[in-house]
């Protein structure tokens, strides 16, 4: 498969090769978990690898938790897109009506501590909100890059990130981390 890809260097080629060998099994597992169909999972993984290939420069250390989080985020989203196309899953509309900039969490920032409980609240975000949130804040992708990676509009990226932040603020408030 690798002979079909263009790489700028041997290092880059080896990097993709290792990435493919190391994670293909996990990615199939994740995609199959979402789609419940072997052939569709293969479609999702193959599409995810193309997207990873296009963003290879974003990956520094193949073995790092950050990298596996990145590739799994991509494959999950690809699988969800396939699911959406099969009308089993409906992504929220692109409108900006419910975007609210009022989520002020500065109080938490001052505490300076990220706890395991806080991370569990991130787990509560739906994948379609969590993916753009993580790609922006954990993987430093621009809205334009996220849009290309998730194959949604930049406007939708902005909406989803706002929604993710609002939802997090709500969850943090309910958990008593912030007042009001």
């Amino acid at each position: 498969m690798l002979v079909f890809l263009t790489f700028t260097s041997e290092d880059e080629k080896r990097k993709f090769e290792r990435l493919f060998d190391k994670y293909q099994r996990l990615l199939m597992h994740k995609a199959y978990g979402i789609l419940g169909d072997y052939a569709l999972a293969e479609d999702a993984v193959s599409e995810a690898y193309i997207r990873i290939y296009k963003n290879l420069q974003k990956i520094e250390d193949i073995d790092s938790p950050r990298t596996v989080s990145f590739v799994v985020t991509i494959v999950k989203n690809t699988a969800l897109t396939i699911l959406e196309k099969r009308k089993k899953y409906v992504l929220p509309p692109d409108d900006l009506e419910d975007v609210n900039d009022g989520a002020d969490i500065e109080g938490m920032v001052l505490s300076g501590v990220i706890t395991e409980e806080m991370l569990k609240l991130v787990d509560e975000l739906k994948e379609d909100l969590r993916a753009p949130f993580l790609l922006k804040y954990a993987h430093d992708l621009s809205h334009k890059q996220i849009a290309a990676l998730l194959q949604i509009s930049e406007n939708n990226v902005t909406v989803r990130i706002h929604r993710a932040k609002n939802k997090l603020a709500q969850l943090f408030r309910e958990a008593g981390y912030i007042n009001g």
Partner: peptide, 25 residues
Amino acid sequence: ADERFYKELAEAYAKRSGENLLNEL
């Protein structure tokens, strides 16, 4: 300040979920 917090939160989440995924692998 919020942006910085979200970044720290997301990075910590990516690290933790990545570790879990590596264990799963």
